[in-house]
Simulated scan of single mutants.
Amino acid sequence: MGDDRCELLCIDFDHAEGLRTALPPADELTQRAERLRALGDPTRLRIAHALHVGDELCVCDLAWIVGSSQGLVSHHLRQLRSAGLVDSRRDGKLVMYRLNTTGHRLLDAAVGTVVEGEPA
């Protein structure tokens, strides 16, 4: 038997059942996993960091900041928006992006970001 398994079946039913029933619903966990997965790509993580510090940026600025093409950055922004981490708004011919509250909180929790000048 592997080191990662109990050699004896000894379920503490009351404790285990209490924890099992306290878990969030499967669809909520799926959404959380999608959000975490969205930050799992290095380019998307760089974009999220840039938006965390830069507040609101257009695709042109983000492409320059992260060193990728506008097309690639747009693709990653769509994924971040789909995951519910980024909001966008049109400003004339520009589309401006910003991390929403969920995006800021998840980025902070996932990687412990601290913006210069903010208390740690």
Rank of each mutant, 00 (worst) to 15 (best):
T101K: 06
Q79D: 10
L57N: 03
S69C: 01
H104M: 11
D3E: 15
V59F: 01
Q79A: 08
S82H: 05
N100R: 04
G2K: 13
G92R: 13
I11D: 04
A33H: 12
T113W: 10
L99N: 03
H104F: 08
T43A: 08
T43M: 10
I47S: 02
C10T: 09
E56L: 05
R46A: 03
D55N: 13
D41G: 07
D4S: 09
H49L: 07
R32P: 11
G67W: 10
R37G: 09
L19C: 02
S82N: 07
V111L: 10
E56H: 03
G112M: 09
G40R: 05
S74E: 04
R46V: 04
A120D: 06
D108W: 11
V66Y: 04
R105I: 10
I11H: 05
C6Y: 15
A120R: 10
S74W: 03
H49W: 06
H76I: 01
V111N: 07
D14I: 05
D27Y: 10
Q31N: 13
F13R: 00
G112K: 12
H104C: 10
G92W: 11
E116I: 00
L57Y: 02
Q79R: 08
T113R: 09
L77A: 03
G54E: 01
Q31A: 15
V53K: 04
P119E: 12
L80G: 05
S74K: 09
L45Y: 00
V114A: 10
G67S: 06
R90I: 04
H104E: 13
L19K: 11
N100H: 04
M1A: 03
A22T: 11
A63K: 06
D41C: 05
H52N: 06
C60P: 02
E56R: 12
R78I: 00
P24E: 13
D12M: 05
W64R: 02
A22M: 08
L99C: 02
C6H: 15
G112N: 11
E17L: 05
A48R: 12
L45D: 00
L62C: 02
P24L: 15
